[in-house]
Simulated scan of single mutants.
Amino acid sequence: MHLSRAARIAVRTAAFAGLVVIYVPLLLVLVDSVNADRTFGWPPSGLTLRWWADAWDDSGARQALWTSVRAGLGATAIALVLGTLAAFAVHRHRFFGREAVSFLVALPIALPGIVTGIALNTAFRTVLGPLGVGLGMVTVIIGHATFCIVVVFNNVVARLRRGQGSLEEASMDLGADSFQTFRLVTFPLVRSALVAGGLLAFALSFDEIVVTTFTAGAGVRTLPIWIFSNLARPNQAPVVNVVAAVLVLLSVVPVYLAQRLTSDSPSAGRL
């Protein structure tokens, strides 16, 4: 498609404006995390790492970080297993309801978080409540896994569609059994997609707050919930900015690595 010079300028201007709206606030969070002024005046009166030290000494923030990591790892593990199985089933087999499976797997990430949170809260209280199991870490992990599955599913399906089924058939023709074919042919084919999907799933879980609010109960505080609950406390403002900066950095890294792994560049497979 050929665009006129005016159209190209308009598209570039709109793209630049969009990037400014998205990334300037994130940069301000990073700057405020080292701003010596407690009131965060602009421009900064000086730079300091004092707030980072205070954040590290805050036991509540450290506990919330560890809680988010555990929830992210648990949700990612579930998403990798279920998302991969669903991807292989949808791609390799033809059965009644195949399209419905694809739709149902993708639906949780498309629904508003508050709808998913309310539905999960009701389901957990109805099903687990009579068994004496309350809201906690397990329900948070299950809740996060519901929308993390789709990123693994999409990555694995995309890789399988780009792969060559003839390689597996050749492996079987040469005498390899099913396990050997999976280990030597199939798994290397989808390995980078699994890593990319796992990284994206962890990033989604790590910064989730809406679903977590409805599934965590009173005893579980993830890092986003800790930030939200401390926003109204003026004395905690510098520490909150540091924790928010850490959250930004820890979310950017897996997304960047996943993008590199799923790109078509020759260097993508080396990560």
Rank of each mutant, 00 (worst) to 15 (best):
V210F: 04
G219R: 12
N35H: 05
R221H: 12
N121F: 08
A158I: 03
A89Q: 05
G83E: 01
N35K: 01
V190K: 08
Y256E: 10
S267F: 11
T146K: 02
L223I: 02
V31M: 06
N154A: 10
P130T: 01
S267H: 12
I209V: 12
I225H: 06
A218S: 13
N121G: 01
G97N: 04
L231I: 13
N155A: 15
P224D: 02
A79H: 01
P112G: 01
A7Y: 05
V20F: 12
P25S: 05
R159H: 07
A6V: 04
I149R: 02
S45C: 00
L82F: 13
F40W: 09
Q259E: 15
R5Y: 08
A7W: 12
W51Q: 05
T186P: 11
L47M: 12
L249C: 05
A100S: 11
L104D: 05
L257M: 10
A15R: 06
P44A: 06
R8K: 14
S102R: 11
G46K: 04
T116R: 00
V29R: 04
L194C: 00
L160Y: 06
R183E: 10
F88Q: 02
R5G: 03
A232N: 13
C148P: 08
V246Q: 10
T39M: 14
F40K: 13
G132F: 07
V105Y: 00
R260H: 14
R70K: 11
L257Y: 14
R270W: 11
L261R: 09
W56Y: 15
T84L: 08
G175M: 08
V253A: 14
V115G: 00
H144S: 02
V190L: 09
V20E: 05
T262M: 15
D173N: 13
M137I: 00
T181V: 08
Q164H: 10
I22Q: 07
R50A: 12
F103W: 12
A258P: 10
T48D: 11
L26E: 10
L223S: 05
G41H: 08
L194P: 11
S45Q: 15
P108N: 03
L85P: 07
H2R: 15
L19H: 03
L111T: 00
G41N: 10
A17R: 07
M137S: 03
M1E: 11
G74I: 02
G165S: 09
H93T: 13
T116H: 00
E168W: 03
A232H: 10
V127W: 14
S59N: 09
R270L: 15
L184V: 09
S178R: 15
I9E: 14
T67N: 07
A10L: 11
L257G: 06
A87D: 06
V220N: 03
T13G: 14
W66V: 04
V34S: 00
D57N: 14
A268E: 03
C148D: 05
T67Q: 10
V211R: 00
P254A: 01
V150L: 01
A170G: 07
T122Y: 13
R70D: 04
G163E: 12
R50K: 13
Q63S: 15
A170C: 07
P43K: 02
A79C: 00
T122S: 13
L120P: 00
F206K: 06
F96L: 13
R62H: 10
N235L: 14
L184K: 07
S178Q: 14
V151H: 07
I9W: 14
R260A: 07
H2D: 14
L3G: 04
V101N: 04
T181M: 10
L19M: 13
V34A: 05
H144L: 11
